[in-house]
Computed example of a mutant assay.
Amino acid sequence: MSKIISVSCIFGSNVFFVLLALLGIRYTGVENSNIYIIYTLFITTLSLLLFFHDALMKNRKMKVTLLFIPIIIFEIYLLTMLFSDVSSLASMFFYYYLLWSLPAFFMGIYLSWDNRHEYLFKSLDLILIFGSGAAIISTIFNVIQGSYSQGLAGGTNQTLSYVSAFVFGLNLFLNFSKYNIVRFRFAKNRLYNIFCVILLPFQLLSVIISGGRGGMVLLIIYLILFLIKTIKSYHSVKLSLFIFSVILTAMFFSFSLNNEIFNSGLERSFAYVGSGGLNWDGTSNRDSVYQDAINLIKERPLIGYGLFGYLSYYPNPHNLILEVLLSGGLLYLILFILIVFYISKKYLSITKKNKDMQFIGIIASFPIVMLMFSGTYMVSSELWFVLGFILSYKEKIE
């Protein structure tokens, strides 16, 4: 049970929509159903109980700085309430931080103890299967409906795009790269490997038909990282299987070219690419969104508008760097860069001693790419899990 709770906590609301898609249910919003609220409170409560029970019963020793992070965020929100008006959007971000990001942060700490990350790595094959099933079912539904906007079980088409790209990446690294992680017995079967080869074109088509630009960028990044790793290690069998899957994908493309929703999804997935470089007309007005955010940053370049205060001036800028600058200006950006540098350095040190830990980076790629195009880092359970895990993980001395 603890394994199911930990995985559900890490991948947050994405698990909710994957489960609904597999059940053939479409979520129509809180105004029609409380199921999302019930699910969120259930996972959040059990995750926190799991973490604090283990921390107290086993008298875990934690770095004090780990507890400072959520305390500082909580205090900043309270100070914003006391000294300025807090927008409804800021309150919503804070509540979702408490419900998804904070438990995921603690779950990262929890899984860093006693090699529990092996639970997560072992469950990646299940995430691959369930996520692929949900993506394919939703894609088929979208094709029948003739619209990519149906998304993943009532979620946005962006959710479908990123989930499809993520399971595509998992498929590549789990089944076509050499790792020594603990896996289920069925995952070691040759028939399962063949099944995963067949899944690749379907996962790619799900990304394309969803029309998600960010998901396509994530898929391309996974593909580049995989090719670099495969060519360096030169696994001929793995490479041959991958080439075979590429041929399958090309065949699927040839059959799909006359499909209207496929063509519209493909056009939208690469709409930002123009003959002369970046085409801003195909970015859903991101150029005007970014320009408005930059104009606000110029007014307060040094200290910004506050972690939650900027939302009273401007909604989410859909870009991680711009959000940091709006929140705390250049001072916060410098601090942010130093934190990223420290985490990256520790991650490289961890993976140097244990290459299997590269799966933490594979998971991290998902929210990092997404946050460059949409969302907010305050509400990203996958990102906060990675943050908690790397900061808490203690490297074993050989």
Rank of each mutant, 00 (worst) to 15 (best):
L248N: 02
S256E: 06
S233W: 10
L227E: 11
L241C: 08
S256F: 03
N259Y: 06
K232L: 14
S233H: 15
S236Y: 08
M251H: 03
S233I: 15
V246H: 00
S254L: 05
S256N: 07
T230Q: 11
S254T: 08
I243L: 04
F255S: 05
S233T: 15
M251W: 03
L241Q: 07
N258E: 06
H235W: 11
L239P: 10
M251K: 02
F242L: 10
K229M: 14
S256A: 09
F242H: 06
S233A: 15
M251I: 10
K232W: 13
S236K: 10
L227K: 12
L257V: 11
I247R: 01
S240C: 08
N259S: 09
T249G: 04
V246M: 07
F253R: 02
I231A: 03
V246D: 01
L227Y: 12
F252K: 01
I247M: 02
T230E: 11
F244W: 06
T230C: 05
I243M: 03
K238D: 09
K229G: 09
N259P: 00
L248S: 01
F252A: 09
H235F: 14
A250H: 02
Y234P: 12
V246S: 02
F252V: 11
F252I: 08
S240P: 04
Y234I: 15
I228L: 12
S233G: 14
V246F: 04
S254M: 05
L227N: 11
S233N: 15
N259K: 01
F255H: 05
I231G: 08
F242W: 11
Y234S: 14
K238G: 11
K238P: 05
F226C: 12
K238Y: 13
I231H: 04
F226A: 10
S254Q: 07
I243N: 04
K238T: 09
F242K: 04
T230D: 10
L227A: 14
K232M: 14
F252M: 10
L257H: 01
L241T: 09
L257W: 05
I247G: 03
I228S: 09
H235I: 15
I243F: 12
L248C: 02
I247K: 00
F252D: 06
T249A: 08
T230V: 14
I228W: 08
T230S: 14
K238A: 10
T230R: 09
S236H: 06
F242M: 04
F253Q: 02
L257F: 05
L239S: 08
H235C: 13
L239G: 09
T249R: 01
L257P: 00
I247W: 01
S236A: 12
I243R: 00
Y234N: 14
F242E: 01
V237Q: 05
H235Q: 11
Y234R: 13
I231T: 15
N259Q: 08
M251N: 06
L239W: 10
F255D: 03
F255Q: 05
T230M: 07
S254P: 00
I228H: 08
F244M: 02
K238V: 07
S256C: 04
V237S: 09
L241G: 12
S233C: 13
L241R: 09
L239D: 03
L241K: 12
S256W: 00
S245N: 03
K229L: 15
A250M: 01
L248Q: 01
N259I: 05
I231K: 04
F253M: 06
I228D: 05
F242N: 01
F226G: 13
S236E: 12
F242Y: 12
V246L: 08
K229E: 14
F226T: 13
M251Y: 04
